[in-house]
Amino acid sequence: MVENQKPQIKVENLLKKFPVEKGFFKRVVGHIKAVNRLNFKIDMGEVLGLVGESGCGKTTLGQTILRAMEPDDGKIYFNFGNGELQNIMEMSKREFRSYRRYMQMIFQDPFSSLDPRKTILDIVGEPLKVNNIARGKELENRVREVVASAGLNVEHIRRFPHAFSGGQRQRIAIARALAPNPRFVVADEPVSALDVSVRAEILNLFKDLQEELELTILFIAHDLSVVRYISDRVAVMYVGKMVEIAETRELYFNPQHPYTEVLMSAIPVPDPRVDKERKILEGEVPSASNPPAGCYFHPRCEYSQDICQKQTPELEEIREDHYAACHFADKLTLRGVK
């Protein structure tokens, strides 16, 4: 699928935990491991979809790999274009600031992500200005350029965000992320807040820009059909852990983890003639501050056995480029989407 198989970003042992506080003086009584020692890589020009249910840590992962939140442990290697991988965790905050332009983000809520007091010119121009990439007339020209490529009218750059609809605001957010010519973009649920007809437009825009600019994207979403449409590979998260990563078709049609199987069967199919039988998950998502022993999924897993309660399975390569964290991954025959 992607010719250039060099990794753009490689994550090792990434950990982000949040303290659980209690009482008058906010004593720390425990930790929620929102991102629990993850290892993965994303190749250059690849779109990795990241799916999982709310609270599984996918948003935290997106923010920690950009160091928008400081990780507690782990290494993040990034290719800044010179062909070698540099560990951005070794850089001081100050040093890292000048590299931020290469890794941008697009947020879910197009209303909260644009400062209402700034014009489009200021918003899209901000990354150019703070990084001293362009100034004055030059900056305005670059802003016009990206605004146009995001499908907006360049005459509107003096307007404020309140003049735009949700879909147009998301285009502005995309223009801002692309203005400093980044190599990597984290898109955190960029279409979840949009209506169906607008969603298609923005997805198409994403696809076009990604191909045109050869961007590497981490696409976070809970909507599995959206991820299916946009991603080259897909990773599935459950309670802070990655349970499966594989090439998109492979993951959807040939899942190797029981949780993925349940997810796939839960997707509502826009076709009334499709057989509606599905796997219904029992119980609830365990709390990340106090996960069950062994495999986190075992209390809800229909294939669970003794070993699952004792030993936490690691992410292992089942087939070429297909990783799953399940003791029985290669033994089970699971059902994908119909």
Binding site: G167, V196, R199, A200
Partner: peptide, 23 residues
Amino acid sequence: QSLLNAIPRMDYEGRLEAIKGRV
């Protein structure tokens, strides 16, 4: 018809057809 063409489907790999303009 446009609404149905605008949703991504599992078995379809082609491009989505967005509805032009806005509400």
